[in-house]
Amino acid sequence: MELNNIIKEIAKNAAKPLHNVSEIGVKAIKEFEIECSLLDDYNYEDIRESKNFKNLFNDLKKIEGPVLYYWEVTSDHSPYEIVERIKKYANSENSKSIPAIKRNYPQTKILYVGKVKKHIWGRFVQHLGFYKVQRTQGLQLFYWAKELCLDLKVTVLEFEPDMINLMDVLEREMAKELKPILGKHR
């Protein structure tokens, strides 16, 4: 088969899932409320089994993926206040890896936009701050948002499995639209 025809076939197959999403939308949309003041130290206890978060994780485990998600601040905290608290945490001695803070962060309520191919519940463990590997990037909410009493809403958009390899494109475009405070989306 000629190289040009191979490229055409690959592009046609890649376009089908995007066309389906443009026609019918996402598979499902779920929203979750997170009160960071309820975060206890779950580094030595499984947060998925805790009384405050068990229902959340049971719901998250039902989402197969791939997934695009974004965290939105619902409490009355300014981006400045949030960024200052994150910087303080990031400069602390035992901080875990966090998403990049934009130099000129936008005045927005959108904290972060992300994606995952499957197991969104595992990504939540990381974002809440309880993944054991310090280099794994996440919001690390327990370490800075708990004492701030930050309230968040997480919107999870689940896609059909054939979209798995196209999530990078959607994440980048969603971040351009929502302009989150954290994360590189180039």
Rank of each mutant, 00 (worst) to 15 (best):
N104D: 15
F57L: 02
L3H: 09
A175E: 04
R103H: 14
F53S: 01
L128P: 01
R186Y: 15
L111N: 04
N5W: 14
A15Q: 14
L3N: 11
H19A: 15
N5E: 10
L3E: 12
S97N: 15
P66R: 05
S75K: 01
H119A: 07
G129M: 04
N55A: 09
I164K: 13
V26I: 07
E2M: 08
K176F: 08
L18F: 04
E64S: 14
L39Y: 03
Y70K: 03
P99C: 09
K87N: 10
Q126L: 13
A145F: 07
K88Y: 09
A14R: 09
H127R: 05
V116A: 08
Y44T: 00
A28P: 03
V154K: 08
I47N: 02
A15F: 13
K176W: 13
M163Q: 03
L170V: 07
N20D: 13
K132R: 12
D162G: 06
L38G: 00
K61L: 08
K146A: 00
K27L: 10
S78A: 09
K51M: 14
I63P: 02
I101T: 05
H19Y: 11
W144S: 05
Y105D: 02
I98Q: 00
W71A: 02
I6K: 05
S75L: 01
A28G: 13
A100P: 02
F124L: 03
L166P: 01
S50P: 02
Y131V: 00
D76H: 06
H19R: 15
V73A: 01
T74I: 13
L139P: 06
R172F: 04
G183F: 06
K118G: 11
V67M: 03
N4K: 07
G138T: 08
K87Y: 04
M167H: 12
S95A: 09
E49T: 11
F159P: 06
N165T: 07
T74G: 04
Y105T: 00
N4G: 04
Q137I: 15
G122M: 14
K12Q: 15
D162W: 00
D40G: 01
R186M: 10
A14C: 08
Y44V: 04
L139F: 11
L182C: 12
V83Y: 00
E23L: 15
Y42T: 00
H19M: 15
P99V: 11
K115T: 07
K61S: 12
K146G: 01
D46M: 00
L152E: 04
P17H: 01
E171V: 10
M174H: 04
Y44D: 06
L56V: 02
K115F: 01
D59T: 03
I82M: 12
K179E: 12
Y112V: 11
A15S: 15
K132H: 15
H77T: 06
G138W: 12
G129D: 00
E23A: 12
T108K: 05
